[in-house]
Computed example of a mutant assay.
Amino acid sequence: MSRELSGSNLVRDRAVADTPPERPGTELTDVLPGIALSVVGTLVAMGVGRLVPTVSPMLIAIVAGALVANLFTIAPRFRPGLAFSSKRLLRVGIALLGLQLMFSDILGLGWGVIAVVVAIVCLGMAGTMYAGKLLGLSWTQRVLIACGFSICGAAAVAAADGVIDAREEELLTAVALVVIFGTLMIPAIPLLSSAMGLSEEAAGMWAGGAIHEVAQVVAAGGAIGGAALAVATVVKLARVLMLAPVMAYLSVRSRRRPAGGAGAAQRPPLVPLFVLAFIACVGLRSTGLLPGSVLAVAGLAQTALLTAAMFALGAGVRLAVIRDVGPRPFVLAGLSTVWVASIALVGVLLVS
């Protein structure tokens, strides 16, 4: 594995080294081809999403990007733009995600449900981190999986990567695991809820607390029923709101970790800018001043930006790399899925 990864890192380093920074305008021309490819992937994913409304464009984009990466050879000229899409566009999309949230909606859940949401995120991350340590996984790999499975899927994985600066193969593995295990949860939660005789509202609360991606929660909630879909979405968005304090904590924690040879200048900011923008967007939406037309445009922009970012992330997924990481991340993903779902179920039973 190390030989293959070292080779890929060497190619990437050479590509960066061959980019002459001193020429004005070169940076823009470097990223345009990759951004254009991400836009094409976004249009395809959103088009398929319209034809199959039960499937999220973001999930389609991840799969499409992975198919492109593994069926074709992506030319080096596309890589700077794909990297830009997977990081910069993602952060703007996460910030705009705050416009889907209102503090009043979260408070409307009641303090009992809010406490359950906080427990899901905090205990979910703590348990995942501990299990990953027992499995011998790196701190960064554990953080990525813990964030993705406890908060909001691939967006949380990529957001955490922007704070802790994990290795590329760790990021791509965590994204792939979110897609695989989150998709498996879409039919599992409705079937288990029915077998246990949960009410629609309780089942929706469980779906919102247990499933990784927002889109996966919507799919599962819709399969349960209309009442379940409404509560599942709000509970899930409450988990999304936890992205801000978790990213701030990780940023502080990363600053305390040894900087190696990079030096202190490369330490992340105390609170990442996109986290502040996310909180500002939540506050702006909560004022009720934004008209529906503005929110509709912002929602479309947020979906398009996150879809472009997911396509770019998917384009970095190589099956050979995923295969070479070994079974331990998959074991941790399975344990984390069961752990988070169990916490959510216990919480639902306590507050129902």
Rank of each mutant, 00 (worst) to 15 (best):
A188R: 00
I322W: 05
W111A: 13
A320T: 10
V55R: 02
G25P: 11
L349S: 05
A126V: 14
W339G: 00
G108S: 03
T54K: 12
T183R: 00
S251K: 05
F330S: 04
F274Y: 12
P245T: 15
V40H: 01
L345T: 03
C147H: 07
R50P: 09
A115K: 10
A277G: 08
T54S: 15
T337M: 10
L289H: 09
L345W: 04
A154H: 05
V143S: 06
S86D: 02
C122T: 15
V113A: 11
I120N: 12
A304C: 10
L90E: 04
W206M: 02
E200M: 06
R239K: 12
G288Y: 07
L300P: 02
A83K: 06
G225A: 01
L171F: 13
R239S: 12
G25A: 07
D13I: 14
Q302E: 15
V252R: 06
G260V: 10
G65T: 02
T303V: 13
L306V: 13
E200H: 11
V246W: 02
S293P: 01
L82A: 00
V55G: 08
N70P: 00
L5A: 13
A308G: 09
V48M: 03
V348N: 03
H212N: 12
A298P: 06
V16S: 03
A188C: 04
G347R: 02
A227G: 15
L134A: 15
V297P: 01
T19C: 13
V39M: 06
G347D: 08
R267W: 13
V348H: 01
L107Q: 05
L284C: 10
A296M: 00
E213R: 00
L43V: 12
A320K: 07
S293F: 05
A228K: 12
P187Q: 01
G110V: 11
G204A: 11
A176H: 07
L289W: 11
G162H: 01
A158V: 15
R12A: 15
A308T: 09
G127R: 10
L101D: 04
V217S: 07
Q302D: 15
A202S: 11
I106A: 10
G148D: 05
V235H: 05
A312T: 05
A17Q: 13
R256V: 13
L135W: 00
Q302K: 06
F72K: 02
G225P: 06
L32E: 12
A75T: 02
